[in-house]
């Protein structure tokens, strides 16, 4: 089943990169969400997976009686999901503002910071 998860992660990555390479900021944002999921799956799978046994110690025991899922990747991913969501929100609003200000969602025409014919370096002392 780890093999299947690895292939699924690859699919997610390919989709995410496909969107990130497109020039529309909306598609790029979609790509970012998928990229986040892809990365989470990658970490999740690299930490090995077990079926169903959550990393929870049964009541009355000091350590789990059976082997459980690896808790460490889960902890990492849990915070990553929330931060990823916060960052996604920020980027979404940023894109929205950029769209409103520049009236474009094509990155090729978003050249405010690096204009096509920017100022030349100064030739003086």
């Amino acid at each position: 089943m780890e093999v299947a998860l690895a292939i699924l992660a690859g699919l997610f990555f390919a989709t995410a990169i496909w969107f990130l390479l497109s020039r529309g900021i909306i598609r790029m944002l979609l790509g970012l969400v998928v990229l986040g999921n892809a990365t989470h799956l990658l970490i999740f799978t690299a930490g090995r997976v077990t079926r169903e046994v959550a990393p929870i110690v049964p009541v009355g025991l000091q350590v789990p009686a059976l082997a459980t899922a690896n808790p460490l990747p889960q902890a990492l991913i849990l915070t990553a999901i929330v931060i990823g969501f916060a960052m996604f929100t920020f980027l979404l609003v940023l894109a929205y503002r950029a769209y409103r200000t520049l009236d474009a969602d094509d990155t090729a025409s978003m050249r405010l910071a690096e204009p096509e014919d920017g100022p030349r370096p100064p030739l003086s002392y």
């Binding site: 997610f12 990555f13 390919a14």
Partner: peptide, 16 residues
């Protein structure tokens, strides 16, 4: 995109 996806899957399989 396909190259990166395949590459990441392969890397992950290698790790596994």
């Amino acid at each position: 995109a396909v190259l990166c996806g395949v590459g990441l899957t392969a890397a992950l399989l290698l790790v596994l």
